[in-house]
């Protein structure tokens, strides 16, 4: 019953990877394979009753398809009821504050509120004041914790397959994160997560897209793609956020493509076993060439499938607080 010692989950919310301990992260990753199996059932019902009768509210202030549908599906596979708030037509437009809106949602007895907001810290503000479990689905350029968890889970799966070690972790695994590090909550959450799990991380991009003092997070920094790709196990390609590119942070898209795009040619600098990951949606032939995006080294769709399982694990832990 308690071979590896009793592990307790006590958190109500998931706001940032920065807050989590290594053992909490591992608890989520260890729980996820069972939920992968639920989604993969060939016959019968692809759901389990762990959140039966609970209400999960998806509250997205920024456009999102992948993350929103992933959370919605995760809640449904746990047998929860789901509600998606369409902000464009909600009371935010009428001047209601976040707190007031959430009090109203809670008056309908919500159990989990999944929030995405352009304001860094939005999730924390709500988590601190409200009894519902709050899951941060991306707050400004701060964090996107479930993305980092599903990425770490996918990397671990790959390493375990590669080394044929059932219990291998990410200790010593080398990850290069390429692209717009400065504006990326995905990069920030991934760095926190990978460092806590013992991986070594290199970030690479145009100097204008590398935040100052990023070295303090314990990562290696380079502006040369070749250098970043040497000896890596994972190439993590970030999306160039064209919609946030008004301020001209690099001279031209063509120059970015020439220097930083991951394609068959630039990938020659990486070892053969290295996988290519991307949080989506891909700008084809901008940060990632179509041939690599469709090629044998990418695990992008595995990331998507794993995302549902990891989010199921998170929701189950936050609501049921199991132990053991």
């Amino acid at each position: 019953m308690a071979e590896q010692g009793i592990r307790l989950w006590s958190r109500k919310d998931l706001v940032a990877i920065e807050d989590l301990s290594r053992s909490e992260i591992e608890m989520i990753l260890d729980l996820a394979p069972q939920f992968v199996a639920v989604s993969q059932r060939e016959s019968g019902i692809k759901k389990v009753p762990l959140l039966q009768g609970r209400l999960v509210v998806n509250w997205f202030f920024e456009p999102s398809t992948r993350t929103r549908t992933s959370f919605e599906l995760a809640a449904k596979r746990l047998s929860a009821d789901t509600l998606t708030m369409n902000v464009a037509v909600s009371s935010a437009k009428k001047g209601e504050t976040l707190h007031d809106t959430l009090y109203n949602i809670e008056a309908m007895h919500s159990d989990i509120v999944v929030i995405r907001h352009s304001y860094a810290g939005a999730a924390k503000i709500l988590a601190d004041r409200h009894p519902s479990s709050v899951i941060n689905a991306g707050d400004g350029a701060h964090e996107h914790p479930t993305q980092a968890l599903l990425d770490a889970f996918t990397m671990r799966q790959h390493i375990r397959r590669l080394r044929q070690e059932e219990n291998a972790g990410l200790d010593g695994v080398r990850v290069a994160i390429i692209g717009d590090i400065a504006h990326s909550r995905v990069a920030r959450s991934n760095i926190w997560c990978l460092k806590k799990l013992g991986a070594s991380v290199t970030v690479c991009g145009p100097s204008t897209l590398l935040p100052v003092e990023i070295e303090k997070m314990g990562v290696r920094v380079t502006t040369k793609l070749r250098e970043a790709l040497e000896d890596v196990d994972v190439v993590y390609v970030l999306r160039i956020q064209l919609e946030r590119q008004q301020k001209c942070l690099f001279p031209s898209l063509r120059e970015y493509v020439r220097l930083f795009r991951i394609d068959e040619e630039s990938l020659k600098a990486a070892p053969d076993h290295a996988i290519v990951m991307h949080p989506g949606p891909i700008n084809r032939d901008v940060e990632l060439s179509a041939s690599v995006a469709d090629g044998p080294r990418n695990v992008i769709l595995e990331q998507v499938s794993n995302g549902v399982a990891v989010r199921m694990a998170v929701m189950h832990l936050l609501v049921n607080k199991p132990q053991g």
């Binding site: 019953m1 308690a2 009793i6 592990r7 989950w9 608890m27 260890d30 729980l31 394979p33 069972q34 199996a37 762990l50 049921n320 607080k321 199991p322 132990q323 053991g324």
Partner: peptide, 14 residues
């Protein structure tokens, strides 16, 4: 689960 009585829920084998 909700009564908090259960242990052994976080194991890896399924």
């Amino acid at each position: 689960l909700r009564s908090g009585r259960v242990t052994g829920i976080t194991g890896t084998t399924g």
